[in-house]
Amino acid sequence: MGKDFVFLLFVAMTIGGAAIVAFAKRIIYNAFALMLSLFGLAGLYVFLSADFIAAVQVVVYVGGIMVLMLFGVLLTTKLTDVKLTTLKNQRIWAGITLGFFMIVLGAVIQRAPWIVTHEELVHDPQSATIGELLMTKYLLPFEIASVLLLAALIGALFIVRSEHK
């Protein structure tokens, strides 16, 4: 029951944060609510006994991507009640996309072989398994991702450099 309580707390954080992201009018609230939601998601990973993934989630999303987004928002003053529409008939397109997404999600939920009991979860250290797999079975995707990140880094440096002629 105690675990259930903490679990529900994380669920509330994830869903509540997402709801604020969707409905808050002030853009900085959206950003911080997204942080809350991502943090709640990390908590849910812990319940799947994926502690390493949870920590990665916090480092990458809360500590990295959110900070980037906040830097963008930070220099805008009180940005309130802006109609953030970028498309014509945005609501209709959003509705269609949402419907499609719900169908896909529903199909996945129906078909996935869910682990329902606590005993079925793997309790081995996740980091060792992940590391081993990255260095053996998934070496090529891992290297491709590294090269992609390196390319992005060099690209960012090139754009930032002032003296490019």
């Binding site: 911080f32 942080m35 916090v58 480092v59 809360v62 500590g63 990295g64 900070v67």
Partner: peptide, 10 residues
């Protein structure tokens, strides 16, 4: 420790 201390930035 690294993960938690990165929350300090936001």
């Amino acid at each position: 420790v690294i993960a938690i201390s990165s929350i300090a930035v936001p």
